[in-house]
């Protein structure tokens, strides 16, 4: 299944400069694994050693933040789009 994945600027070194690339899979986890096969190294920038999403990475399927839809288990269908963004947070404490 073809899923369009939007890649943030700083990770485009992995995709030959492409803003968006195609991947396939029926879950976010599968899509990221497929992405890494096509663009080696991407997975490590998104997934922790423990196998979860880095907290400083926001991933959306279409317009839904995957933290609210099952994270890596979020299911995907042909034509869905995945957007990867930096999460921005901080504060006085």
């Amino acid at each position: 299944m073809a899923i369009e994945v939007r890649i943030p600027t700083i990770l485009r070194s992995y995709t030959g400069g492409a803003k968006s690339v195609e991947a396939s899979g029926s879950s976010l986890s599968e899509v990221i694994t497929d992405l890494d096969a096509r663009h080696p190294g991407l997975r490590g920038r998104l997934i922790t050693d423990d196998g979860g999403l880095h907290r400083f990475v926001n991933v959306y399927v279409n317009d839904e933040d995957v933290r609210f839809t099952g994270a890596l288990a979020t299911s995907l269908a042909d034509g869905d789009s995945v957007t990867i963004l930096p999460a921005v947070a901080g504060g006085a404490r």
Partner: peptide, 8 residues
């Protein structure tokens, strides 16, 4: 004491 960009 903290901030986070709203996701949407």
């Amino acid at each position: 004491t903290g901030y986070r960009f709203e996701g949407d």
